[in-house]
Design a protein around this nucleic acid. Structure first.
Lengths: 200, 200
DNA sequence: AATATAACGGAATGTTTATTCCAAATTACT
DNA sequence: AGTAATTTGGAATAAACATTCCGTTATATT
């Protein structure tokens, strides 16, 4: 396993981020209820004892990996945000990245946050909180990009920037669902093209 | 139970459509793996024996209820299609219906087809077939509406109608996910407004 | 060398699960 | 009246499940 470090009392010291990423992967692929503890042990390389020692139980691990996934999702946006581009260019780059990721990772099951919204948000309040926080965070960044594009006069809009960010967020969700519904790169690219064209 | 008829040998003759609709409801709420046989018995009013006699097993019932849900979803589009409206008006009516249904049924968990795509499509080929067929059927109808709107000169487009139907389909999926992510009527209405405005 | 710490394998537990089975109940048809 | 058809409740089964527990190993610190 790649998670080994050898500094603490015994050798197989696992890396928490590695575990959360692997757990997010298996939950994304099989869903919360479809993932067994054995699946998690295989995916993370953790021992049964370590899992319960360090993550309390399956549900707690799920929430931690969902939170981790959400943070890394928001960080992807922030790394686009850090580039020296205007808001419209950032939007274009983001959508290009999203489509590429979806078509390059056909084994992955779309997006853990979308899947969590579908499977768990009505059953588990904490899940719905993470899903909702993700929506807010993403929309805030999108809003700032739209405002920037308007300011720099590369975009002309006639509604509050927030409304456009809601619209763009719905497209982001739609792309994830469509890639799980048999849509290929051409179709996803069409959707992005119309979405971005519609801003002008 | 409302499914009772009394014509056949014994009394509790159940109505297959009623059962499939109830099953679709509980699968939508709890997901496939989150729904137990006891949940299904309670939701459908079926006896354990009848379930296995008539629907083979849980997975088979899931597929039948998913197929049933997909047909009734497509039929909703067709009933809009039957109205004496131009293509653009049909689009507006459809989106209004979708938003109203989402906000009027907060207990329901979005859309069984979206949830099935998220939870099951990578694990079960038959599920992915139904999900994919739904996408094709819906897009075909949307395409015909867009072509009609163009023909009647209420819409001016510069790409094949099919491309716009893919875009509209992504919005439909996005709306369902967003309603499971804490979006209220105002937000969903904003998304619809921008989507429809973008066609002009 | 001794000890405390951290992780391990794997057996054990008890619950939940889907599914099968069977005897009983009910009614239409002959 | 009797028989076949159909559904029922509920016990029985067996597998899968999450979780707990314990003895062992390994090492960093004292």
């Amino acid at each position: 396993m790649l998670s080994q470090i050898t500094l603490m009392p015994k050798n197989k010291q696992f890396n928490k981020e590695f575990v959360l990423e692997a757990a997010a992967g298996i939950f994304m692929e099989k869903g919360y209820n479809g993932t067994s503890i054995d699946d998690i042990l295989k995916a993370t390389g953790l021992s049964r004892s370590s899992l319960y020692d360090s993550f309390v139980d399956k549900h707690n691990l799920y929430l931690q990996s969902l939170e981790f996934y959400k943070e890394s999702n928001v960080n992807k946006l922030k790394s686009v945000d850090d580039k020296n581009l205007n808001g419209l260019q950032k939007l274009e780059l983001l959508f290009k990245n999203v489509v590429n990721h979806l078509v390059d990772h056909p084994n992955e099951n779309g997006c853990l946050l979308v899947n969590a919204a579908a499977e768990m948000s009505k059953q588990c309040y904490k899940t719905s909180q993470v899903v909702c926080n993700n929506k807010d965070d993403v929309q805030d960044i999108l809003t700032s990009w739209i405002s920037d594009a308007e300011l720099k006069k590369v975009l002309k809009i006639n509604k509050p920037a927030k409304v456009y960010s809601q619209f763009l967020y719905s497209t982001l969700c739609g792309l994830r669902v469509m890639s799980q519904s048999g849509a290929g790169k051409a179709e996803l690219t069409n959707v992005v093209k119309i979405t971005l064209d519609s801003l002008n």
